[in-house]
Design a binder for these strands. Sequence first.
DNA 1: ACGCCCTCCTGTTGGC
DNA 2: TGCCAACAGGAGGGCG
Length: 272
Amino acid sequence: MPELPEVETTRRGVEPFARGRLVRALRLRESRLRWPVDATLPRRVSGARITAVERRAKYLLFRLDTDTTLMLHLGMSGSLRVLPVDTPHRKHDHFDLELDSERILRFNDPRRFGSLHLIEGDPAQHPLLSSLGPEPLAASFDADYLWQRTRKRRVAIKQFVMNAQVVVGVGNIYASEALFCAGVRPGRAARLLKRGEVAAIVAAIKRVLAMAVEVGGTTLRDYVGADGNPGYFRQKLFVYERAGEPCRSCETPIRQRVQGQRSTYWCPTCQR
DNA sequence: ACGCCCTCCTGTTGGC
DNA sequence: TGCCAACAGGAGGGCG
């Protein structure tokens, strides 16, 4: 499940191979992704030079020297790998970005929840990016900010921190993990949290995401980084997918419930 | 503005 | 052993 650490791991893996390269071609095999891929996109990226590989929220941004940006979302099951140009494609390999280096960037996504856009001009103005909240690892995401945003919000804190208009990059895995780390139960109403609890949540989100980035993200099923290797944060999960298993801190069985159509996990002893 | 639920999709899992 | 339903979820969109 690519969340921020998985997308950032992909960005770091791809960037050394992509930056400065010319796009020889974009071979699109399947345009039915989250949104239909524009049929003119391959022609429009062809011949452009990649000047930078950036990330905003869970989007990868390939800045091109033609004042355009190729924007890729990995969806739920997507991965982008660096491969030799002659590697035979397999099932769910939806497109290849061919570089002038005998290498390709190959997108594989069984569930097709991913997306690919070509943006003219400033990508921050694109509708999918323009109303997003701050990056969780940025200084602007601090206790004051989250405290202000939680006022008057009745929604459960777990759903609140997963809202990309509040803060980006926190998906289902890291929301549960961060709330465990902060000692706050996921079902608490956002507006009823104490100031200190909000500060703990901010610190926990930053700590959990930074640790996950360090070990290459979390691989549950599909996810692999640009080099094809899985992420190793799964071994460090305290609550996610551990229903009934003993808490790593106090041995109380971990609980699970569905919250906002997503599984939530928590320790009833360590979290209040 | 907010909160809630639906939708897209396929591989895996579990029950009968 | 085989079939089918349930489940997983990022996030936009629609509705009240």
